[in-house]
Design a protein around this nucleic acid. Structure first.
Lengths: 199, 199
DNA sequence: AAGTATACGATACTTGAAGTATCGTATACG
DNA sequence: CGTATACGATACTTCAAGTATCGTATACTT
């Protein structure tokens, strides 16, 4: 009841330190990966004491998660297009570009670490993945209303089908995540791979 | 030139110890996850000294990787059916069942750890993923020859599209990997989601 | 049978990073 | 000006990975 109450007494926490920590964490993990860096490095890079980090976050993963949410999240907006289907394709391309950027390693690191850390897994799913999935589902619903997609599809499953292959390549490294790949995923999603035999 | 040469001199390595180590590693990681267990635990469970493990493998990940390849790999065979497309669907269902089993956690652990360990990433990709992808691609080629799939598709990309969603759910936990999900992936793969408007 | 080379289990040791405890100092509010 | 809390710094604790070494065991060679 009181531990979460930021008492007004005493010296207030430094907003500068907060920003410096997140910025350093983001930069280091994007460049070197989650496992390769230490909390001491983040502290040194940010010009703060290690305790200033542990006073605010329970562990390294939580710092990096917040860095992603606060510094990168706002940059990942969704495109608006005339047709919902065009928005969808554009979003897939943005996702690919994002994964090719320095943040690809950041996402890989967090998703991997989340396999060992239930708290992180929940945070990653609820605070990063789910909000973005909801945006995708909105686009899909609009596309259905516009008469471009079948109306009997399951939206959650469909989202998995669209984004699964991109995450797969990110984590398995079986191929590059370029626009050709995205276009293939998108086209396959629309029309399928079956031969439509002449009747 | 000589370090890889198993000299015939001296006491030979114990095959029993080898099997006991792999079996213990597999059992412990499947039950508790890669991060939760220690090499000391594996050694104790197998009834060997820790050095017997480090004499044979460079690190914990390598032990678990070999446990997967030697003990689980042989169980993961591919179905043979009349039509290649039926084999494909059956293989997707087997993959789902495998991920739902105790080995789902094993795969998750190794794939996650591989994000931090280049050696492990190569081993996982080359020794586990690639051989299984080749089998899938064979099935796809047969399906094309049988006239059931379009002949202009890229086989590598198509494999990513088929298996990506399953790995996505394994790692993200956005939904269960049951036969309904598999059937959705398979049906979507064949026919697509586009509305085929009346001409 | 003796000698040599290597593996064995056991155990002590080293290393390195995560996380904790504590210090004297700094900065807010009342 | 007193109180409460944050600050940077630094020493400390903990834990698991990986290494070094011991005396013993088991093979092949001579």
């Amino acid at each position: 009841m009181n531990s979460s109450n930021p008492s007004k007494l005493g010296r207030p926490r430094s907003g500068d330190a907060h920003q410096a920590i997140l910025k350093s964490a983001l930069q280091l993990v994007s460049a070197q990966g989650f496992r390769a860096i230490t909390v001491n490095q983040i502290a040194a890079e940010a010009g703060v004491g290690k305790m200033t980090i542990y006073r605010r976050w329970p562990n390294k993963a939580a710092v990096v998660m917040d860095a992603l949410l606060e510094l990168v999240g706002p940059q990942t907006d969704f495109p608006a297009s005339m047709r919902a289907l065009d928005s969808l394709r554009e979003q897939l391309r943005l996702q690919a570009k994002f994964f090719r950027s320095r943040y690809g390693r950041l996402i890989r690191s967090l998703l991997a670490e989340a396999q060992f850390d239930g708290e992180l897994a929940s945070a990653f799913r609820n605070r990063w993945i789910q909000p973005r999935r909801r945006r995708v589902i909105q686009i899909l619903q609009t596309a259905i209303q516009e008469g471009d997609l079948r109306s009997d599809i399951d939206l959650e499953t469909t989202t998995d089908i669209l984004y699964g292959p991109i995450y797969y390549r990110l984590l398995l490294g079986t191929g590059v995540i370029d626009d050709a790949f995205i276009d293939h995923v998108y086209r396959q999603f629309l029309t399928g791979h079956q031969v439509h035999k002449a009747k």
